[in-house]
Amino acid sequence: MNIFRIIGDLSHLLAIIILLRKIWKTRSCAGISGKSQILFALVYTTRYLDLVTTYVSLYNTVMKIIFIAVSIATCYLIYMKFKATYDHNHDTFRIEFLLAPAVILALLINHDFTFLEILWTFSIYLESVAILPQLFMVSKTGEAESITSHYLFALGSYRALYILNWIYRYHNEEIYDLIAIVAGIVQTALYCDFFYLYITKVLRGKKLQLPA
């Protein structure tokens, strides 16, 4: 474990807690892409199946359980409890265009053609594009509430910090995983324009307005 990964995991945890809390407190999921949340729930459930087969550490197990539980709870709030506030009209990204390539790529490019490894690889590829429906929705509505942009900043930062973690581990432990690294770079790159807007606007108290 290293400082980059600890801060990355905490940033990730913060992001999903911010989102769950926002929906729960405002009793509304306006501006939130339910499709992205479904993809994230899928990412965690397919990646963390190894919860039942391998024990890495208490921290690892606890975090995996939290990520699965919070992502499913968020989907429940969006599609069940507060579904009257779900913005169908703006959450229109075709997620099958993300799922199909992730499945195909996982079957073609992986470390090991076993069930758990293919699922892990699918999860890594899917996570790199899972935020697209949310970013698409923000671009369609032309703006995002500041709490949503804090969520996106924390979520985008987590994988950026993981890239530093991978550099650290390659340098210090001589291990690396190209699939995770390439997907992580793609994932972080998707946030770049958002990061720019967040830093130049939201941090100056302005609303996040995307050029429509």
Binding site: D9, H12, S57, D177, I179
Partner: peptide, 10 residues
């Protein structure tokens, strides 16, 4: 080795 990494990462 490459793929021992993710077994201990989230």
């Amino acid at each position: 080795g490459t793929n021992t990494l993710h077994k201990d990462e989230l």
